[in-house]
Write a protein that binds this DNA or RNA. Structure first.
Lengths: 204, 204
DNA sequence: CTCGTCACGATACAGCCGTATCATCGCGCC
DNA sequence: GGCGCGATGATACGGCTGTATCGTGACGAG
């Protein structure tokens, strides 16, 4: 028969919220003990729920990890746009670039957790077939940045600028996570690189 | 019969060679199916030996992984110096920088395997306590490159140059491994970045 | 009241994991 | 010829893994 519940999906608890709660547990484990330590049982314990619940909201572990990955991407995107918005609305293309790229660096505890978990996921999928979803996302981000580089009047080819900047950010993320640099040092390194991209020719 | 082996230690087989054989199996597995797939049994099968043998030459799995990591570092170092030597001996500081940094990018099947396995290892140790060994190595490499940047007369602070270049290489490695760029594209990106570091001020 | 279904608990299952134990072979040495 | 020992095979053990099954309160619908 046709569902005639109030007017919504027939759920008494907020599934999305539960999933978020469990996903956060995965992220916490991945950031502290590594993604390989995130077994279904560990995740359940960390989230304060039973193993059955994790199975209930994510039928399989693969589904759980995929959801977590999407959740992480969302959070990273929000961080970028929020940081850009804080530079004044609407931010100039150049200010946007500084803000957005800096927002990707692990500078505080939260961003460190996010980037660490994201990196672990990323590395795992490196050997899995067909991860083109993340690829197109990365390319879209690069194209967006390239547009901003062009608008901001950066030297050289905007596409090259964007690709180089993103790769640099990616490398700096790892360096900070490994403890080679502090978040501030990485920001300084990135800032200097961007400054160079905008340096007036002849202003050695 | 004549002793073809060491006359010092009473070993009939070359332990180092056996270890190398097993380590290569780990690298092959890590590059194709991921480091998490490299169980002791899988490694034994891939190396064509029995499980007992892997245990015999590496008392524990942790010992095996540590050995593999050292092996990978060695191979990467050899690739760098070899590439530098091919640019003429002794290579100019600037040529050395181009060669050494390019050698770190996954441009062929072998380097792809090495970098992929190295990345997997690196990511795993990100959440392990006390991995300062790799850190001091990274710092030493950066200082060496900084020296070359200074000798080659690069613009700006040599330390910043070296740190930025290394982080960029690291990011490009990931991008190539993920399939975002080809090895050649990454080399081009890196080359352009280095060109900029050496561009005469005012040569916009 | 009955019933279906959502939400969840307890527990079982087969399989793989790293590691340990025991039993041999091959071979130089006394 | 026996012995010691390095090198290796076969196999067992406890533990953890992801997943599946069965059961059961709560609660709105008919």
């Amino acid at each position: 028969m046709i569902r005639l519940y109030r007017d919504e999906v027939p759920t008494k608890v907020d599934h999305e919220e539960r999933r978020r709660q469990i996903a956060e547990a995965v992220i916490r484990i991945a950031a502290s003990r590594g993604l390989h330590a995130a077994s279904m049982r560990e995740v359940a314990a960390e989230a304060g729920v039973s193993l059955r619940l994790v199975q209930y909201y994510f039928h399989t572990k693969q589904e759980l990890l995929a959801w977590v990955l999407a959740h992480l991407g969302e959070q990273l995107g929000r961080r970028m746009t929020r940081a850009a918005a804080e530079r004044g609305a609407p931010a100039s293309p150049r200010a946007f670039l500084y803000a957005a790229l800096t927002a990707l660096l692990p500078t505080d505890e939260e961003s460190r957790r996010i980037v660490l978990a994201y990196t672990a996921h990323f590395t795992l999928t490196l050997t899995d077939p067909g991860q083109e979803a993340g690829l197109s996302y990365a390319n879209a981000l690069r194209d967006l940045l390239a547009e901003r580089f062009a608008q901001a009047g950066a030297n050289g080819d905007p596409g090259t600028r964007a690709a180089t900047a993103l790769a640099l950010v990616s490398g700096l993320q790892l360096a900070v996570l490994a403890g080679q640099y502090t978040g501030e040092e990485a920001v300084a390194l990135l800032t200097r690189h961007l400054d160079e991209a905008f340096a007036a020719p002849g202003a050695g």
